[in-house]
């Protein structure tokens, strides 16, 4: 591991010692994610929103839905876009300015999990083929950083999308015109759930907190859909995994993803 401070090195040896006894620094089991709390409808100005706490990591996601021009090669589909930002108040190390590669990766991994699962039926977002479509923008901000932003942002974006209301537009003289008070539920086909796991030495831990995050050898984020199939995956960190470890991670992502999907389902039912 490059770029470790002295404190991180001491932490790593402590964390590794504990793992050898089957324990984690915050008393969780190795395959136990932190408590997940989801509140929806927290931003009334947004078309859908959620505040998620995963342990002490906190995210706010808001959905904006608005007419847009389609991508040139996809005139028969609406637009979906996901962004993520670590706000400067989220952590002493967070800075303002152009996004760093790790933040770009965060946004792209969250986007990929949702996009590749086909969660939103974008074919229902066409106002006029090749000319005008509906765009759904899911913007997530990190307000408190305590590790594993991938999953926290992903759960927040997914919960916000499920609870979003899609306004109705009709084409008049080539211009989309908003029809008041005719909102509908978002066309949801599946619920993608990401599970991020880290490897420290030989140990695989689920949902690393910020102390563990600082000393991971490698990490992997696996997103599954409601059928339990794998829809997206991203390995990160300065080391690798063996095939056996990757198979174990896929099994963990399916079983834990199933439990988390139930929490997301319950939290979003009230908001609908």
């Amino acid at each position: 591991m490059a770029n470790l401070s002295i404190i991180d090195k001491l932490k790593r040896s402590k964390i590794l010692d504990l793992l050898q006894e089957g324990k984690r620094i915050d008393d969780r089991a190795l395959d136990e994610p932190r408590p997940l709390v989801i509140d929806t409808g927290v931003i009334p100005h947004a078309n859908g929103s959620a505040r998620v706490r995963l342990g002490d990591t906190e995210i706010v996601s808001g959905i904006k839905v608005q007419p847009d021009r389609p991508f040139p090669d996809m005139g028969d589909k609406g637009i979906f876009m996901c962004t993520a930002e670590i706000l400067p108040l989220a952590h002493p190390s967070a800075e303002t300015g152009p996004p760093q590669p790790d933040v770009i990766e965060l946004a792209r991994v969250v986007d990929r999990g949702i996009r590749e699962s086909g969660m939103i039926d974008l074919s229902q977002f066409v106002l006029e083929k090749d000319k005008s479509v509906i765009g759904l923008f899911a913007d997530s901000v990190v307000t408190d950083h305590d590790g594993n932003l991938f999953d926290a942002c992903s759960y927040a974006a997914v919960a916000a999308i499920i609870t979003s209301k899609i306004p109705k537009w009709e084409m008049k003289d080539d211009i989309p015109v908003l029809i008041e008070n005719q909102e509908s539920d978002a066309p949801i086909t599946t619920i993608p759930i990401s599970v991020t796991m880290g490897r420290i030495g030989e140990f695989i831990i689920v949902d690393p907190n910020i102390d563990e995050w600082g000393c991971l050898d490698a990490r992997i984020t696996i997103t599954t859909n409601s059928d339990g199939n794998i829809v997206a995956l991203q390995k990160g960190g300065s080391d690798g995994f063996t095939l056996e470890q990757l198979v174990k991670c896929s099994e963990l992502s399916i079983t834990i993803g199933k439990k988390i999907r139930e929490i997301v389902k319950q939290a979003t039912e009230g908001g609908k």
């Binding site: 590749e116 490698a218 995956l233 390995k235 690798g240 995994f241 063996t242 095939l243």
Partner: peptide, 8 residues
């Protein structure tokens, strides 16, 4: 060791 892995 597998050091790069992504999936779409």
């Amino acid at each position: 060791k597998i050091t790069l892995l992504q999936l779409d």
